[in-house]
Design a protein around this nucleic acid. Structure first.
Ligand SMILES: [Mn+2]
Ligand SMILES: [Mn+2]
Ligand SMILES: [Mn+2]
Ligand SMILES: [Mn+2]
Lengths: 225, 225
DNA sequence: TTATATATTTAGCCTCGTCTAATTCTCTCC
DNA sequence: GGAGAGAATTAGACGAGGCTAAATATATAA
């Protein structure tokens, strides 16, 4: 079989190749996995040897058709776990990531299917990320629009937030911002600050543009169109 | 921290020293862990180095006061998982052991505490084994009486069955024998066969004496006393 | 087109958990 | 009390994953 470490490498490759749409470089992977480059080189050789990735020396790697379903299975585990932890075991959505990142490698597919059934086969995880089905279909990524692309006065529905920064997640949920929340953009500044008003509140929530760009949102009504 | 493998060694030592009430020998451990003896020797040195066990060369090992709570924590995880899997995720009690044996090393104490809370802090696992509390108290072992110690005509309540033989567990549950079941001993033979009648049924369930001896039961009424 | 900077790979070493083969200790039995 | 038998340990190796330092390939920029 495949070690937990190998699975994490494959998962990292999946996310990175999705982001950049290019071959994933050794250095990028090294940073992501928090190891030195030679460790990556030796690992990608093993993964290529076993046909999960295509490796071209000095040119980076891509997942093969063998590798992709492996990754999707892990992502299914991860997102179902996150959902189950928040929904059934009273975890805060800020704490689920680490627990899920470990357990994803150790639960059986049977376990995953059972918690999926308990949850009614949910389509998305607590951060709005799509959960692959048991036969590993994944919904296509949402429209690329982010909170940073909006105009003042726009109303948008939050679709997806990054799941790996607990502090941000705590901040967001404390201010009533989760997937499905509708917010109005009340201010954007030249120095990179976006201010929101969650629907039905008078609260003002400020976010650095950098962060706003990482939050996917669906435009509902625009003052500008 | 401690690797999953090390935890399994400690757990094995715990069970073996409980069974024999003596120092656990290298060979016993090797058989239990399904590795060769030199592997055990090198592992017990590491565990002794870290003070989880006391190791006397050529004389076997014993858990230290540092090692015992480590084991109890793992056993708590294992038994809570088994209970949760059967009760909330529709696992058959014959299938839970393997899943629990893997996951016990990977769930956090928080996870264990949450499933314990969901279950109402149960005292025993599906096989009747006591679940250590969050502060690691364990109920003392049940009376040593087994199904093999009974007389024909005795009524006994099943307390505990071995959890590592799926076939046996399936057989038992198919014939309505689980912890809490009351059965009457209807026959014992000189060639080692015990026959039971589960309470309220007319069914006859036969078991080899070897197996009967591994099932703990509480005598309720005896024809003989 | 050539020189320099940067990314990547190779070389060699380490720890963990395992193995086989060889050696040494312990125990029993005469 | 000594000879063997049998159990346990030591010696030396291997694969997985990691590291550092050295070598090499690629990219950039003159
Ligand atoms: Mn992971
Ligand atoms: Mn998530
Ligand atoms: Mn285990
Ligand atoms: Mn059990």
């Amino acid at each position: 079989m495949l070690s937990a470490i190998m699975e994490d490498y494959l998962k990292a490759i999946y996310y990175l190749q999705d982001e950049t749409d290019e071959r994933v470089r050794t250095s990028t992977l090294a940073e992501h996995m928090d190891v030195e480059q030679p460790s990556v080189t030796s690992m990608v050789k093993k993964l290529a040897e076993r046909d999960f990735i295509h490796y071209k020396p000095y040119k980076g790697v891509v997942l093969t058709d063998t590798g992709i379903p492996v990754v999707l299975e892990i992502i299914r585990h991860h997102r179902l776990l996150e959902r189950y932890l928040t929904e059934r075991l009273e975890y805060d959505w800020a704490e689920v990531h680490d627990e899920a990142d470990r357990l994803e490698h150790h639960i059986s597919n049977q376990f995953a299917d059972r918690i999926a059934a308990q949850l009614g086969n949910p389509a998305v995880d607590p951060h709005g990320d799509p959960i692959p089905t048991a036969d590993l279909d994944v919904s296509p990524p949402q429209s690329g629009e982010t909170l940073a692309d909006q105009q003042v006065g726009d109303k948008v529905r939050i679709e997806r937030v990054p799941d790996n920064d607990p502090d941000l997640l705590r901040y967001l949920s404390e201010h009533g911002i989760t997937p499905k929340t509708v917010v109005e953009i009340v201010e954007t500044t030249s120095f990179g600050m976006v201010t929101l008003d969650p629907d039905g509140t008078d609260e003002r929530v400020a976010l650095p543009e950098e962060v706003a760009r990482s939050i996917i949102a669906q435009t509902l009504t625009g003052a500008s169109n």
